[in-house]
Each structure stands twice: as structure tokens, then as C-alpha cells.
Design a protein around this nucleic acid. Structure first.
Length: 930
DNA sequence: ACCGCCGGGTGCC
DNA sequence: ACCGCCGGGTGCC
């Protein structure tokens, strides 16, 4: 979700999206020392989604004068047990959003609270309704959340100590205090129970949308040239992304959900305020569906924006024979190389012999590439990444030129020694060598590195092992050969644990597994000892799971600027967003409790509430039925005969068991799908590819639903109905029934339909004007295409046909036939909407007749693109047949909505399950004119 | 006076 | 805390 999508001007059928997320604010509260064994209390995996509100209770916070933490009226506070308090083992601390202690819960109340909290009977949340200026005590409104089955125990325990909880106010207690609507921490007028402001998904989304740079495809003013040291010309969208990234890194605006009011800085979610300006996040989320250039754009960013938009000061080296280092720079070894220090920042990870050094570094460099090329290794998933190293011979064998490379490396070491410059060694790519030769000067000139800027200079890049070599390759490819960039590949058993060494690099490259294993191995992780200029998480969705070690390891990195690069930003839900926003240090979301209170619960609760008048039960449970009926309506718009073979739909068996019912639904879905109807997948919102039907009778693309199952295991739920989802229950189903060459000899006599009449009228008219003009006739229903064949023959048209059920050979024939300009070649092609890939070239056609509308405008666009593409010399005219006052008109209005969504800023690329659900419901409502 | 009352000292857990 | 509580000073009216 929350991704922005600006495709090419054709709009929806885009082949490239580049999405940008950003967010603000740095929370540097976490000290260095804390990072290792911080017991993340929120890490325990309670199913917070199942929690219900038990009720509210007013209490008192005491001891205010002993603590520095302050609160506003109406501000959220956190309750924290303090079992080791020497005065009372039941002590319960009260902290403000910043984590500063405000006071304690009065001991009489602390006693039952301690029991409730310690036994996890409920999660207790607080809001200070008023008394912000009190000197000694202040009231606190507490709410108790937990699993239904624990409610009584909580009530009993409170009662035992003489407290009685007020029952929740009906419907108004959803994530109280999250004032996205009122949006501010004003004076409190709150009655007991507190004003609850419900946040809908829409409101939330619009708040988050503010974070996203609104890059417009045609806005060339936003472009920025890549730094000159980038040897590759950036594409327009990369220039835009680069400009946006630089803007984000130098941005001075308040982070989202923060406002300045009366010289204070207010957080509108929690009502927390502070005098100090919250630090902004310098960075964001860069999402790119296609993997087209995140890496290059990021490399450009590293070189272009070191400080205040000024480029990274790098050395320029010019010589006739040099070797550039990637992955391995080597150093002046303590004392044993006569190195001129001002310009030689080459580092060595060992102080032993130089050639050994090089070799060790190379070994942390080459196996990756060979692995990537050898299926045996590339198939290994990251989780299987191991510290074990292949025997060296194996490695060498897999890369033909490695032995030479090694030799060269050694030679370059000698070269270093000879000249006194440890400026270059290791393996140049052939391309690089070529470039170097072209430069062809024999002198070595080193531009002085400007180290006058304070603070860190190093960018840490973390990526999955499988793309490590890609980074190295791209750095090698895109950076001008005369630029010396210090890169250290922090990988392999010999990786240096010296933070000093790392801090002298321009780029340190490592993998999530190394990051995690270093983090887990008691404090010798140099990655976590340093403060980085910039940390980049490539394929950043790998930190989606908040409990994963690599997520914790990533969250505990110190950096001034933070970036998440991802191809699949948010899979299923808001939950996935937490780690990402937390990594960006978007206050107050670093703490999962605050995230849950301010965003997740209000949104999910709000959604439930949103379904009260048009319930899930009435639509989604009968989703397949509704689709079946709609399909028949759509077919009727085309031709009455299309409905004849769907008679099994109407079987209204009464005494069905749930299992029979389910089977019926699945069968219906099968029929709907095999009719050729263009249905869409609720995960990707695109036309179905490899459709599969779930046990609960919902349809998704196989890859989409498999990913859901994968990422949510072991308890994956259907994105549409939250029913249990199991791989083995998925029913595959062919896209189109193969009615090819098994043309159904319908018993009925052929009859025309309005659409057929209109089509024939147009075709005959066209032929009169220009007998050579070629037309595509497109429908989702292959049976409809078959019905059209009859009048075509009668009127003497030569036509060919292409649908999904045809074997590849026949397809090629059909296309060649149609594309031919010879006299007597077919002038008409009957085309099934989804037949053929994007690459299908039908430029011979200059007219397209679309017989029936599809759900997804992109599917239609794609179809038009098949003739309206490079090589097309004529104007293309598209005619759509739509039956007035029918379901088809409503489908058009849905298409328009989708087009707007896709064209506008931040179309919801990956919506949450609930959004999908709501969209579906709305669509169905539109279709049946509700 | 093994009380009441007064008023100062004092104050989370 | 413009409270409560504690404990010392004090003691008819």
C-alpha cells in the first residue's frame, strides 16, 4: 500500500513504476550500549489484533515532582512494570511518549495492576485527561485491552482491591486519543472514557500520503543530473528519484504527524509535545516494481549528496595502468608500506603479507559472483546463507579468469610497493580496463580528498546475499574509472571487525545475515559501533518481521540518513509497515506499542466499524455468487447464447452442507474463470495470472497467494475473508476452457445480438471505405468470438483467430497470417482479451473493436497496445461496445475510478486486505447500483 | 495525657 | 499539598 505509481503516459498498463516513500524524524534516544541485549518487550508475539477493550478506570499518577517526564492534557502515556522497585514490588511506572518517566501509579492501584500486567491478563494503556501542570499528582484514564477470555479475571482482580472498571463506551473507544480528525492536542473537554476519534483507512492513508514525494512523470524540473563521476546517463525517472532522494536527505520540514504550536512541537497522534524540534528523518522508502535502477540511483545519491547537497569528495586517479578496487581495498599496513598518507585511504584487513590480504579480500568478493551464476548456489535462499566457504579450488573453477585475476592482484600489490601508492589493486573488469586505457596518461594524480566535513562519511548498504554481487557489478560499471571510491565488502570469515577501518570507507557493503549474526554475537559488531552517514536497506521488505533478528539488528543501526529500497513495499497489512517506519525512526513508531495504539488498532477497528451497514456477510461471503450473477449479466449484454452453458449456476440447492456449499462456490468460480472473463486478483489488483481458487472460494494469482502463505506462515489467512489458507487446498484452474477446434455445436439456431449487429454494420461500412483495413475484434468470452464467426463468414470476411487455448504453433501462424499485407490475407482477427503476452505485435490492425468491458482498464489498455505500438503507421481507432443502462455502464465507471487512481499521485499499489475488501464491496455496490 | 487538640514538618514507589 | 499523615508539644475556661 501507500505506494506511488507513475507509469508511462499510457497510464495503467505501465511498465515501470517508481515509488517514493519518505518519512521524517529521528529518534536517537537509544544509546549505543543498549543495543545488544535490549529485551524488546513488544517483541513478544501476542496477537494484538484479537484484543478487545475490557473497560476504563480512572486512577492517579503520583510522585510527579521526582521525574522529568511531562505530559499534556489528553496525552497518551505508557504503563510499565517495575518489579525491582525497592519500595514496592508492585510498582508501575508511568512514562510519556518519549519514554521519560512521569510518575508512578498510586500503590493501592498498582497492586492489582501489577498482577494483571504480570500475568498478561490485559495490556493497560493510559491517557492523562487533565492536570498536566500539577506538581504532585495527576489523574490517569486507563483502558484495559486483552483477550476476551481474560476479561473476567481482570474485573475480579480489580474488584478484589476495591476498583470497579467502567464498561467501554459503545463504539467510541477505538484507539482513543488518536486525533487524526481533530488533529491536535487541545485542551481537554473529555468526559470519563475520553473522546475517541476514529481513524479510517482513508484518513490514515491521506496522512501518510503527505510523506510521499509527488513525482510527476512530466515534471522535468524535478530532474537532476547524476554526478559526473557516474559514468552512466541516468534515465528520466532515475533523475527524478535522485532529485527526490537528495531533497529528502536535506529536508528541513517537520516530520509527519508533527506540528508547531505555541513554540512547542506537537505530535498529533499522541498529543505529546516538546520544546525541542523533533529531528527529521533524512531518507525514506524508494520502491521500484521492476528493479529498474534503484541500485544505480542509490549509487548516484551516495556520490551526489555527501553534505548539504554537495558531492562526496573522492579522489581522482589517473594512470595508464591501474587497478581499481571494489570489494577490497587494501591499506597501508602499519608501517610496512611507504605510503603517503594524505591521499591513500586504502585499508587492509590483516597486517600479514599483502598478497594474502588481497586474496582474503577477493575471496569475500568473488564467490558471490560465481554463486550467482551457478544455479546450485543462486537457488539457495538467504536464510540458508552460511558462513562456510567452498574450497578455494571450487571457487576458482567456477570463474574462469580468477587465477589471472589473482595474479594481477598480486602484481598490483607490487605496483603499490614500487610506487609507494597503495592506490589501486584487485580486479578490474574488462570494461574498466578498457576505459582506463582510453584515458591513457602515465602520471598518477590524486585529487585531495576533502575530509574537512565533520561526521561520518560512510554509507552502509545491506542487501540479501543474492544481490551482493549485483551491487559490486553496478558500482564497477557505473562509476567512472578514474574515481577512487573506497568500498569494503563486509562479508566472509576474514571481515575486519575494526570500526576505524570501516569508518574510513565510502561504502561498506554487507548482507542481512552478516548484520544479524554480528548483532547476535555479543557486541563485536563494528556495524553497530559506528554512526553511519547513511544506511541503505536493499530489498528492505526483508525486515518486515519485527521479531526477526535481522530486523532488530537493522533497527539498531545508527545513521544520519536512512533508506529502504524495496520492490514489494507492503504485502498484506499495516503490520508490515511498522518495521519500515521504525527503521526510518519515525517518531513515535519506533516503539511497537505506540504504533499499535496510534495506527494499527484504530485502523483495523475502524475498518470493522466501516462494515456495520453493508456487511461482509452479505457480500463477501457470497462473493462468488455475486460474481457469477454479474458474469451472466455481462454475457447477456453480448449475446444470449453465452449463458446457455452456465445453466449449472442457477442450481439453488437448499439443504447444502457447508462443504457442499463450498464446493459449489469453487465450481462457480471455475466456470467464471474458464469463460474467459477477465477477473482480477485481490492481492495485486491486476488481471489474474495462473488463477487458483482457495478453500474459501476466493480467487488469486497463484504467485500472489503463495507469497501471502509464505510470508504469513504458519497461519496464513485469506486476504479477503481471513479464513484459513493452505497451499494444499488451492484449486488450480485454467484461464480459458479449450473450446478451440471443439466448437460447440449449439442445438440452438444461430441468432444475432445487438452487439453483433452493430459490429457487422461497422465492419461492412469500413470495408466499403477501405477494403484493406485490418481490425481486431476483442472479447473476454471466447464463445462470443465463436458466435461472431458465423456472420463474418456469411458476409465474406477473411478472418483469423487468437485465443488462450490455441497451441503456440497455431498462434504464430495466426499472427503471421494477420500481419501479412498480401492480398487475400485476413482482415480481421478475433482476439481473446487475455491471449498472448505483452509482446504480441499486431500492428497491421488500425481498428480495434472491444466487444465487452473488462474490470481492469489495464487489461484493455494492454490489448490496445498490441496494435498501437512501435511500427504502427496509421491512426488507431478503438470502438467499445457498451450496452446502455446495463451492468456494463457501471463497469465503465469502475474503470474510470481505477484509471484515476492509477494516474493520480500514490495510487494504492499494494492495498491492505481491508482496503481490498472495501474496494471490492464498493465495486460490487457500484455494479448493482446500490 | 494509655487521651484530644494544635500546628509544624512533610510528602511516590 | 488550599490536602492527609506523622509525631511532638501540650493540656480548663
Amino acid at each position: 500500500m501507500f505506494s506511488k505509481n507513475y507509469g508511462p503516459s499510457t497510464g495503467y498498463g505501465g511498465n515501470r513504476t517508481y515509488s517514493c516513500y519518505s518519512s521524517g524524524d529521528v529518534d536517537s534516544a537509544l544509546g549505543f550500549e543498549d543495543f545488544l541485549y535490549t529485551d524488546d518487550t513488544s517483541g513478544t508475539d501476542e496477537d494484538l489484533d484479537l484484543f478487545v477493550l475490557f473497560g476504563n478506570l480512572r486512577g492517579n499518577v503520583v510522585g510527579l515532582r521526582y521525574y522529568t517526564g511531562v505530559v499534556n492534557n489528553n496525552e497518551m502515556v505508557a504503563l510499565q512494570r517495575e518489579p525491582n522497585n525497592p519500595y514496592d514490588k508492585n510498582a508501575v511506572k508511568v512514562n510519556n511518549v518519549n519514554g521519560d518517566q512521569v510518575g508512578h501509579i498510586k500503590k493501592e492501584l498498582a497492586a492489582p495492576l501489577a498482577y494483571i500486567i504480570d500475568n498478561k491478563l490485559a495490556r493497560v494503556e493510559g491517557i492523562v485527561p487533565y492536570g498536566a501542570k500539577n506538581a504532585f499528582t495527576m489523574p490517569i484514564q486507563m483502558s484495559f485491552w486483552g483477550k476476551e477470555e481474560n476479561k473476567q479475571a481482570v474485573l475480579d482482580r480489580l474488584k478484589m482491591h476495591g476498583f470497579k472498571m467502567a464498561p467501554p463506551l459503545k463504539g467510541s473507544e477505538l484507539g482513543f486519543g488518536s486525533n487524526l480528525l481533530s488533529g491536535r492536542a487541545g485542551p481537554s473537554y473529555s468526559a470519563p472514557g475520553h473522546t475517541a476519534v476514529q481513524m479510517t483507512t482513508e484518513q490514515l492513508k491521506s496522512e501518510f500520503d503527505k510523506l510521499f514525494e509527488d513525482l510527476k512523470e512530466d515534471d522535468k524540473t524535478r530532474e537532476i543530473q547524476g554526478p559526473e563521476v557516474i559514468g552512466t546517463q541516468l534515465l528520466p525517472h532515475q533523475k527524478q528519484a535522485l532529485a527526490w532522494m537528495i531533497l529528502r536527505e536535506n529536508n528541513k520540514e517537520l516530520p509527519p504527524f508533527w506540528e508547531e504550536r505555541n513554540n512547542f512541537f506537537y505530535n498529533t497522534l499522541t498529543n505529546f509535545a516538546e520544546k525541542e524540534r523533533p529531528e527529521n528523518v533524512l531518507g525514506g522508502i524508494l520502491a521500484d516494481d521492476m528493479g529498474l535502477g534503484k541500485t544505480l540511483t542509490t549509487i548516484a545519491l551516495i556520490l551526489a549528496n555527501f553534505h548539504n547537497g554537495k558531492p562526496l569528495p573522492v579522489e581522482k586517479i589517473r594512470c595508464d595502468q591501474f587497478y581499481k578496487v571494489f570489494g577490497a581495498t587494501s591499506v597501508k599496513n602499519e608501517g610496512d608500506l611507504p605510503v603517503k598518507d594524505h591521499n591513500c585511504n586504502l585499508e587492509s584487513s590483516t597486517s600479514s603479507g599483502k598478497s594474502e590480504t588481497v586474496q582474503a579480500q577477493l575471496s569475500s568478493f568473488y564467490p558471490e559472483r560465481t554463486k550467482a551464476k551457478k544455479p546450485k548456489y543462486s537457488e539457495r535462499s538467504d536464510s540458508e546463507e552460511s558462513e562456510e566457504w567452498l574450497p578455494q579450488e571450487t571457487r576458482i573453477e567456477t570463474k574462469k579468469d580468477l587465477p589471472t585475476t589473482r595474479k594481477r592482484s598480486k602484481a598490483s600489490c607490487n605496483f603499490q610497493e614500487d610506487t609507494g601508492f597503495a592506490s589501486a589493486l584487485a580486479a578490474p573488469s574488462p570494461a574498466l580496463k578498457k576505459k582506463a586505457k582510453q584515458k591513457g596518461t602515465s602520471s598518477i594524480q590524486l585529487a585531495k580528498r576533502d575530509d574537512s566535513e565533520e561526521g561520518p562519511r560512510t554509507t552502509l548498504i545491506i542487501c540479501p546475499l543474492s544481490v551482493l554481487s549485483n551491487w559490486i557489478d553496478q558500482l564497477e560499471q557505473h562509476i567512472s574509472p578514474d574515481v577512487h571510491l573506497n568500498l569494503y565488502v563486509y562479508y566472509g570469515p576474514d571481515r575486519s571487525k575494526d570500526p576505524e577501518l570501516l569508518s574510513r570507507q565510502d561504502i561498506v557493503l554487507t548482507t542481512y545475515n552478516i548484520l544479524a549474526s554480528d548483532y547476535g554475537s555479543r557486541g563485536d559488531s563494528p556495524l553497530h559501533k559506528l554512526k553511519w552517514l547513511r544506511v541503505v536497506l536493499d530489498e528492505g521488505h526483508t525486515i518486515r518481521n519485527p521479531n526477526a533478528l535481522q530486523t532488530k539488528a537493522a533497527l539498531n543501526l545508527e545513521a544520519q540518513r536512512r533508506w529502504i529500497l524495496t520492490g514489494t513495499p507492503i504485502q498484506n497489512s499495516l503490520k508490515d509497515l511498522w518495521s519500515l517506519l521504525s527503521f526510518l525512526k519515525l517518531k513515535p513508531f519506533a516503539d511497537r506499542e505506540w504504533w499499535h495504539r496510534t495506527i494499527q488498532r484504530p485502523v483495523t477497528m475502524g475498518d470493522q466499524a466501516g462494515l456495520r451497514y453493508f456487511s461482509e456477510g452479505t457480500v463477501l461471503a457470497h462473493y462468488a455468487d455475486v460474481l457469477g450473477v454479474l458474469l451472466r449479466l455481462r454475457q447477456l449484454c453480448c449475446h444470449p447464447h453465452l449463458c446457455t452453458n452456465t445453466s449449472s449456476f442457477s442450481g439453488t440447492g437448499v439443504n447444502n452442507t457447508p462443504e457442499e456449499l463450498r464446493e459449489k462456490l469453487v465450481n462457480k468460480m471455475k466456470l467464471v474463470l474458464s469463460s474467459g472473463s477477465d477477473e482480477e486478483c485481490a492481492v495485486c489488483l491486476d488481471s489474474l495470472t495462473f488463477p487458483v481458487i482457495t478453500h474459501c472460494a476466493h480467487v488469486f494469482c497463484k504467485p500472489c497467494i503463495c507469497e501471502v502463505i509464505q510470508s504469513e506462515q504458519p497461519n496464513a489467512k485469506c486476504p479477503l475473508c481471513r479464513n484459513e489458507l493452505r497451499l494444499e487446498h488451492l484449486v488450480e484452474c485454467p484461464l480459458e476452457e479449450s473450446d478451440f477446434e471443439s466448437v460447440k455445436k449449439s442445438d440452438q439456431e444461430w441468432i444475432p445480438s445487438s452487439k453483433i449487429n452493430a459490429l457487422m454494420h461497422a465492419l461492412i461500412q469500413l470495408r466499403k471505405e477501405n477494403p484493406a483495413v485490418k481490425c481486431l475484434i476483442v472479447s473476454q468470452f471466447t464463445t462470443f468470438l465463436s458466435l461472431i464467426e458465423t456472420p463474418l463468414r456469411e458476409s465474406g470476411f477473411v478472418f483469423t483467430r487468437l485465443d488462450g487455448s490455441m497451441p503456440q504453433k497455431k498462434r504464430v501462424e495466426a499472427i503471421q497470417c494477420f500481419q501479412s499485407s498480401q492480398a487475400g490475407s485476413p482482415t480481421i482477427m478475433l482476439l481473446s482479451l487475455k491471449a498472448g503476452g505483452v509482446g504480441l505485435n499486431l500492428t497491421a490492425a488500425s481498428r480495434v473493436f472491444l466487444m465487452d468491458p473488462a474490470w481492469n482498464p489495464a487489461a484493455e489498455d494492454q490489448c490496445f497496445d498490441r496494435c498501437h505500438r512501435l511500427g504502427q503507421k496509421q491512426a488507431v481507432v478503438i470502438t467499445k461496445f457498451v450496452v446502455k443502462n446495463s451492468v456494463e455502464e457501471n463497469m465503465l465507471s469502475i474503470q474510470n475510478k481505477k484509471r484515476k487512481l492509477a494516474a493520480g499521485a500514490f495510487a494504492t499499489k499494494k492495498p491492505t486486505a481491508s482496503e481490498v475488501k472495501q474496494t471490492k464491496i464498493n465495486e460490487i455496490k457500484t455494479l448493482i447500483d446500490l
